[in-house]
Simulated scan of single mutants.
Amino acid sequence: MDILRYVAFSTDPLGGNPAGVVLDATGADDATMAATAAEVGYSETAFAVPRADGALDIRYFSPQNEVPFCGHATIATAVAHAHRHGVGELLLHTKAGPVPVTTATGPDGAVVATLVSVPPRNEKIDDADLAELLDALHWSAADLDPDLPPRVAYAGARHPVIAAATRARLADLAYDMAALGDLMARRDWTTVVLVHRESDTVFHARNPFPPGGVVEDPATGAAAAAFGGYLRALGLVDTPASLTIHQGVDMGRTSLLTVGVPTGESSGIEVTGTAVQIG
């Protein structure tokens, strides 16, 4: 397999979130994909198989397991595909459902990709699960923003959303990886969306990812889509809206995600970003 390496949600190879991309994984079995992802070592590697209709079947593997959907690897795959085949529209068939992606060339010559998630949904977090989650994070109820209540949000993968009352609380991330990973495995949570609201449409985010063997994801498109759906479902943003999410800053991999939240509860959430190939 030809393994490409891209950084998503940044044009700086030292920023964003690295992803492995295989544009043609035809014939690769599960064991081969899992071993390849572990060898690459990034939080996700995407394995695409071209279809006769021009679409791609795609699967996503972390170093430790497979996830149904990954946003940053989707953006990386779309940009890599555009570099090879030209910009335009592309349909990805993921385990979570169909995800259309559009690529275009920006004013600076960089390829920009926009994905549209599957329809999002939200559910309340059980009180016992919330207590266990906060304990694993070493957070208390007093650390939470009461205007952004805890929920489990979905837009292709499940993520608990926990909002910090202060930017300082978000910046201080030192959690129990084993305890959090065990809880997330039991509840089928992919990452934890930790956020702080700077303004109505500007947010700062961090995403622990212990089920994948990754302490923190520097840019998480699937979580950003889920978070956009969460804000819409709870009436916490006026739609249509364009959100800016800053991520990776506290770990030295600055990333920028733009999230489009259309009106209509069944509408997918748009996540836009750039990507750049790395050696």
Rank of each mutant, 00 (worst) to 15 (best):
D200R: 15
P98Q: 11
R206D: 00
A141N: 13
G212L: 04
V215G: 03
P98E: 15
V152C: 03
P160D: 02
V202Y: 10
H246I: 11
D53Y: 00
L91Q: 07
Y175R: 10
P50Q: 10
L183H: 10
V112Y: 09
A35F: 05
L91Y: 04
A34S: 01
V161A: 02
A179P: 13
V261N: 13
L14C: 06
T201A: 14
I245N: 12
V271N: 14
T45R: 07
L92R: 07
R51C: 08
A136L: 06
L90E: 02
V276L: 08
T239M: 11
T114H: 11
L137K: 01
D143L: 15
P208F: 04
R84C: 09
D217C: 02
G106I: 15
I75C: 05
A8Q: 14
L4A: 09
P119F: 07
N122K: 03
L170T: 06
A46I: 12
M251A: 04
A241N: 13
H81Y: 10
A113D: 09
A110N: 11
V118L: 09
A142L: 11
D176P: 10
A136W: 11
R197P: 08
A275R: 07
A275D: 02
D108E: 05
G260T: 14
V22I: 10
P120W: 04
M251P: 02
D172N: 15
T258W: 10
L137Y: 03
P218S: 06
P68V: 00
V87M: 09
V161D: 00
G27P: 04
A8D: 13
T26M: 10
A55S: 15
D53P: 13
L236R: 14
A241H: 08
A136M: 07
L134S: 08
S62Y: 09
A52S: 12
V192W: 00
G213D: 09
R232H: 11
P262G: 07
N122A: 09
G228P: 12
G212A: 01
F69V: 13
V271T: 15
V192C: 04
A205R: 06
M33R: 04
I269C: 13
L130R: 02
L137F: 01
D145K: 10
V193I: 09
T32S: 08
D127P: 01
L144P: 09
D129M: 05
G41Q: 02
D182Y: 13
S117D: 03
V237A: 08
T166R: 07
A165W: 09
P100R: 11
S140W: 11
T201H: 11
L257Q: 07
V214G: 02
T45L: 00
